[in-house]
């Protein structure tokens, strides 16, 4: 995984693409490797199903969570805390940004551009081809470009998170992979990971297996908790 080489990992994508789930899993993997880790919940779009709801689980793993001021309070005010600036000063930490969906969510990232100009970052673009407005190259490209311009940053890697929730099969993941591979060639952006449940990713071919990013699912409705 890129955890060892990169200090800053940013997860962006269309809303509902699975950024939060991946950011949480990535954060826990980072902490388990002994890294001091911070997750920044930068989501100013979603009212619920967000990183801050899993604060207890993350803090138990020794991960620090920075959330929008009113996240989880039920107050719908997209205000970001000044504390976020500290993650650019204290370089002992690995920092994970979970960015809100779409170009609207990516706007929140734009204000930190002066920091990103001075320090390398990795920006992942998470894709689920079974989500609306993400099923073909053209739609994905349009949103990706718009997120880049709103955040004033460049996507460095793609993540294939193609799934239809608990009904996902390896065929669904591979169908997504075919679309994203073509996109990857066109944009000249590599595919870093293929995300999914461990038992499904086991069925990946040898060629693709080193890209596997097995996920534990944290975001669930109340009847599945």
């Amino acid at each position: 995984m890129n955890i060892e080489t990169d200090r800053i990992a940013i997860f962006t994508g269309h809303f509902g693409s699975g950024k939060t789930e991946i950011a949480i899993n990535y954060g826990i993997a980072s902490a388990k490797r002994g890294n001091k880790t911070i997750i920044v919940d930068l989501d100013i779009v979603n009212p619920f199903f967000r990183t801050s709801e899993k604060k207890d689980i993350l803090e138990n793993q020794g991960i620090k969570v920075i959330s929008p001021v009113f996240a989880g309070t039920g107050i719908d005010i997209p205000s970001l805390p000044a504390e976020i600036h500290s993650v650019f000063q204290n370089k002992e930490y690995k920092v994970i940004f979970d960015v809100g969906g779409d170009d609207t969510g990516a706007t929140a990232l734009g204000r930190f551009y002066p920091y990103f100009r001075q320090e390398a970052y990795r920006m992942y673009y998470v894709i689920n081809v079974y989500r609306p407005l993400s099923s073909n190259k053209q739609d994905i490209k349009q949103m990706l470009t718009s997120i880049e311009s709103h955040s004033r940053l460049q996507v460095t890697d793609l993540i294939n998170n193609s799934n239809i929730s608990h009904e996902t099969t390896i065929c669904d993941i591979l169908k997504g992979q075919a679309v994203i591979e073509e996109l990857s060639k066109e944009l000249n952006i590599p595919i870093a990971y293929i995300a999914g449940k461990a038992e499904i990713l086991e069925k990946l071919s040898d060629k693709l297996r080193d890209k596997a990013l097995p996920l534990d699912i944290y975001m669930r409705p109340p009847w599945e908790q």
Binding site: G16, R131, P132, S135, I164
Partner: peptide, 14 residues
């Protein structure tokens, strides 16, 4: 084919 949707999106598409 099946797609993965939020309830709100599904209402709009339907």
């Amino acid at each position: 084919a099946k797609v993965l949707m939020k309830g709100n999106e599904a209402i709009a598409e339907a």
